[in-house]
């Protein structure tokens, strides 16, 4: 039982290492040779623009949920006036990047793995290699860069909408003036909060893009194999985002404590 667990854990760590190497290889290629602009534009549309409606709906309701929950907590301390600032701070530092990451795993990660996996099992990727085309540059790099940029931009959009959702809810439910709600934000949202949220969104975009591309790129076993890889990519990305969120939060908190913040 223990041996099986150890073997399983070892395989997961090796797989994670392979994903990191793969993502790094693609990013290095981007740094040295760039990304074909037409392919990047296509992927940005697929990855970012098509995810905007989902982000708008989710962002609005996340803002509203955060306002309800935080107002209930703050009321016990007579500090319900600070709901706008606290809700936005929590959203930008943690809930927003994780939520956007999850949306992209569902909307883009699964599609990416399925497309690349199908290309692999139908020999399209090998055919590109035989034609002298680098499949990493043509297929992986645009998708990875699009995932990173989209994650960051969608976080920004989602955050703005969540402020709208939170202030609307606070106004309708608690009678809080929307202007008062918004005016509390600068008191709680520091530059460090913005940097934390931004860094997390970039990290999660890199993670989910690398996982989705890696699992698809190395798919085997026909249609059933591609299906398994899509499931594996989704699970690995979701778990990866949660684990990465913990480590990034932990490192940043230690760093801030170290500089006496």
């Amino acid at each position: 039982m223990l041996a099986r667990f150890t073997e399983n854990l070892k395989s997961k760590v090796e797989n994670f290492g392979a994903v990191l190497r793969f993502g790094f290889q693609a990013l290095r290629l981007v740094a040295t040779e760039g990304v074909p602009p037409r392919l990047l534009t296509e992927q940005l549309f697929e990855c970012g623009v098509k995810a905007i409606p989902t982000t708008l709906v989710s962002g609005f309701f996340v803002g509203a949920i955060m306002a309800i929950q935080i107002e209930l907590q703050l009321r016990n301390f007579g500090a319900e006036g600070a709901v706008g600032g606290v809700a936005t701070s929590v959203t930008i530092r943690n809930v927003g990047p994780v939520l956007i990451g999850f949306i992209l795993v569902g909307k883009v990660g699964a599609l990416t793995t399925a497309v690349l996996g199908t290309m692999r099992v139908t020999d399209q990727i090998d055919a590109l290699t035989c034609l002298g085309v680098d499949p990493i540059r043509m297929l992986v790099a645009p998708r990875l860069i699009a995932a990173i940029i989209s994650c960051f931009l969608l976080l920004t959009i989602g955050l703005i909408v969540s402020v709208g959702g939170g202030s609307a809810l606070a106004w309708l439910n608690f009678g809080t003036n929307p202007w008062h709600y918004i005016s509390q934000i600068p008191k709680f949202v520091s530059l460090e909060s913005l940097l934390t949220g931004g860094f997390k969104s970039l990290a999660f975009g890199t993670l989910l893009g690398s996982v989705a591309c890696y699992q698809g790129y190395w798919a085997t076993g026909g249609a059933a194999g591609v299906g398994k890889m899509v499931r594996k990519a989704a699970i690995n990305s979701l778990v990866g985002i949660i684990v990465a969120d913990f480590f990034i939060s932990w490192i940043i908190s230690h760093f801030l404590r170290g500089i006496g913040h």
Partner: peptide, 29 residues
Amino acid sequence: RRRCSLIFQNPALIDSMTIYDNLALGIRA
């Protein structure tokens, strides 16, 4: 690979490209 081309069991054409673009891939690369 230019002098020695492999024609796969699957036609292995890139689905998202026209036939023209598929044929132009190797020429451009």
